[in-house]
C-alpha cells in the first residue's frame, strides 16, 4: 500500500513538472520536482531497491513527456539513483539534513551533465539527432536548477511525517 502511494506521488510529481512547474521559472529555469523527489526517496527510504525503482519509474515518465530521444532520462535517473545510493552508504553523516542538501545540489548539477552526455551519446549512436552542448550555458542552467531544487526540498521535507517511505 505504501509503495503504491509512493509511486502515485512520484507520478503526480512528473505531471506537476510538465505543467505547473513550467510556469514557475527564474532566469528561464524551472525547478525539477521529480529529481528532488528521487533524492528525497534515496535519503529517507534507506533502501537502494526503492531508490533505483523510483529512478526507473520517474525516468520513464520523464521520457514520455520529453522531446529528446526516448531513454535519455530513464538512464540518467537510474544512474543518479545508483550513485546516490552508493554515496549515502559510504557517507558517515547520513543522518545530517545538510548532507541531503549538499547531495541534492551537486547531484542536480551532475544529473544535468549526465543527461547532456547521454543525449550526445545517442546522437553519436544515431539514435537521435538531438544535441545538448556541454558548455558554460549548461553549467549556469544546472546551478540555477540546483538552487531551486534546494528550495523545493525545503517545501517537500514535511512529507517525511506522512510515513510514505
Amino acid at each position: 500500500m505504501k509503495k503504491t502511494l509512493l509511486f502515485l506521488i512520484l507520478a503526480f510529481s512528473v505531471l506537476l513538472q510538465t505543467s505547473f512547474m513550467q510556469k514557475i521559472s527564474i532566469f528561464g529555469v524551472s525547478p525539477n520536482l521529480p529529481m528532488t523527489m528521487l533524492f528525497f526517496v534515496a535519503f529517507f527510504s534507506r533502501s537502494y531497491k526503492m531508490t533505483m525503482l523510483s529512478g526507473l519509474f520517474l525516468g520513464l515518465l520523464f521520457d514520455i513527456f520529453s522531446g529528446t530521444a526516448f531513454g535519455i532520462f530513464s538512464l540518467t535517473f537510474i544512474c543518479l539513483a545508483f550513485f546516490v545510493s552508493v554515496l549515502l552508504d559510504s557517507v558517515v553523516l547520513r543522518d545530517n539534513i545538510f548532507m541531503l542538501f549538499a547531495i541534492l545540489f551537486f547531484g542536480t548539477i551532475f544529473g544535468s551533465f549526465l543527461s547532456a552526455a547521454t543525449a550526445d551519446l545517442f546522437d553519436l549512436l544515431e539514435i537521435s539527432v538531438m544535441h545538448i552542448n556541454l558548455n558554460y550555458s549548461l553549467l549556469k542552467t544546472s546551478v540555477i536548477e540546483a538552487v531551486l531544487n534546494s528550495f523545493l526540498m525545503l517545501a517537500i521535507l514535511p512529507l517525511r511525517r506522512f510515513a510514505i517511505l
Binding site: Q17, T18, S19, Q22, P34, F65, T68, S112, A116, A119
Partner: peptide, 8 residues
C-alpha cells in the same frame, strides 16, 4: 504540457 527538463 512542456518539456520537464531544462536541457531542451
Amino acid at each position: 504540457s512542456f518539456e520537464p527538463s531544462n536541457l531542451s
